[in-house]
Write a protein that binds this DNA or RNA. Sequence first.
DNA 1: CTGAAAGCGCTTACAG
DNA 2: CTGAAAGCGCTTACAG
Lengths: 338, 338
Amino acid sequence: MVTIKEIAAEAGVSRMTVSNVVNHVKGKVSPETEKRIREIMAKHHYVPSMAARSLSSKSSHIIAILLPLWEHTPSSLLLSPYAAYLVGYFEELLREKDLYVMLCSFSTVEDVLKFQRVWHTDGMIQLFPHNDDITHQLALETESPMVILDRHFDDVPMLSVCIEDRKGGYLAAKHLLEEGHRNIGFAGSAIQTSKVVNDRYAGYCDALAEYHLTPCPAWTFDDVIRFEGGVKVGNALIKMKDRPTGMVTSEDLIACGIIQGYQENGFSVPEDISIVGFDNSIPATVVTPKLTTINQFMRKKAERAVAMLLRAMEDPTYRDDLEVMDVDLVKRRSVARL
Amino acid sequence: MVTIKEIAAEAGVSRMTVSNVVNHVKGKVSPETEKRIREIMAKHHYVPSMAARSLSSKSSHIIAILLPLWEHTPSSLLLSPYAAYLVGYFEELLREKDLYVMLCSFSTVEDVLKFQRVWHTDGMIQLFPHNDDITHQLALETESPMVILDRHFDDVPMLSVCIEDRKGGYLAAKHLLEEGHRNIGFAGSAIQTSKVVNDRYAGYCDALAEYHLTPCPAWTFDDVIRFEGGVKVGNALIKMKDRPTGMVTSEDLIACGIIQGYQENGFSVPEDISIVGFDNSIPATVVTPKLTTINQFMRKKAERAVAMLLRAMEDPTYRDDLEVMDVDLVKRRSVARL
DNA sequence: CTGAAAGCGCTTACAG
DNA sequence: CTGAAAGCGCTTACAG
């Protein structure tokens, strides 16, 4: 390994001068000296050691992607297409800024704080905040700037990028209503405990209310676990005497499951039931019929989160902000006109 | 930040003694001293700084997951369900061993070598080796132990975990043949350039040969890009006078696309065409009809790769090995008996 | 524009 | 079982 010392020796300058070249410090090194040093660095394939750098400076250049461990998928969050997209975008966007991505799954606040201290992370981005207590405490105790996706509390300073979940739920139900549906159910992964899902549900209720309808408890499914949960919902629905003609869901995979549940029993979608998904992820376009769904702009969301994080890394006073991204309805083939 | 120095001072011992406790060095510290030190560490939430550690020792505890940048999906590999699974498993498995996961997308060999030097990585795992020249050179020049998935060369020492691709292609075609199909096509993402796809294709040819059949050029689709590419294949097939009754594919998403291409033109699967996927990923179970596909044991594959890497990290002489994982056929609903 | 000194928080290698 | 010395490869904070 070539070190800064050897580069300095060969160039006949001090280590500081090399350091200034490496770090692009303006007006510190004459152009000729810089050119000479750069050539020597290139010749030896010199790269600065991040370990040394991060030890002596405050900055590690490490951004941790915080992945909460769920009960249902202890293996990993990456099993969700939503997470995979985002992590991919983050890696790309952060790389451009000379920042490095570490994955950090965690169960407790202490896990995260420990990770921060161990690596001296420059920043963190949390996906899927699933537990309000933990998120709350994290926002309070974090030492690195942290951006949280899909959750915000007003009573504590925190940086969040959310989407219009309520509007999403509203648009989904409204679309069904406009297509003539009046018996509309809802299937979500955690209406009680997840703010995101709860908001989507609330939006669904808003739309029903506009038509002077109230949600039917029998058609409201809570704690629906991903695709398999959706299949169960589908199986349950077809056994009912009174069936809804439309379903709003909190997640594309749940919608896909319901479709599956219908089809494997000889029913058809959207003939026997109309379904709206949420997220507009890959499964939404792979399933037959293609899913009418609520689209969120993943790429843009990732960009906003990174921009927010970079600003927070520059400006220590920037620690409280909320950005809410828009959503829209994507019409495909899983909804029929009544 | 509490440092080892302060812990040592409070415990009335040298820094070395604390270091030995942290690193679980056996027989170096008396049980009482260790207990006292542990309590003090816990009290102060002391964690060793990885930067300092990695600077003074040789080991950074960082494992890089190498993600080649493709032309077609420059954003990220994580868009593939296959990659998402694996990365999730790796994070989980490595975490247990006190190793940390960094994501490293790259285009050139130099990108990877630079990353190695910058972070002094303890190991690397490469997903989707897509370019033989690069993989070759990487195997030769890497300074950290490296495990490569789905590619192996015999002429250079390298550690690889592959699957029985040829057998997979064979099983897929054989199944169609046994169901009475004789006109069977193949759609793959890169028959020419990807060894994996080429092997799957070769296996398909093997099966045909057993029945004294030869592949039909008109039904052989190369460079099929993911789902959208599959749709195009479907659209192309239905326009043909002579259509195959079965298709073997190199990837579930391609199979899903073909299904889509048929269905959106009023054709049905498997009535109008039987299709076999590859990988047994999430889309395979979400699509209608559910895909008959070649299953590879992802979790096990991840475990084998990690085991191989850990061994290589312990044993500097262990630098050449190949493990080939089995595959099997999963029968679902996308294949009809003729 | 350039440099000498001190230090970041650990571990290695050695001595006792 | 414990410790004092030197060093890992950088940067900070100064001085010139």
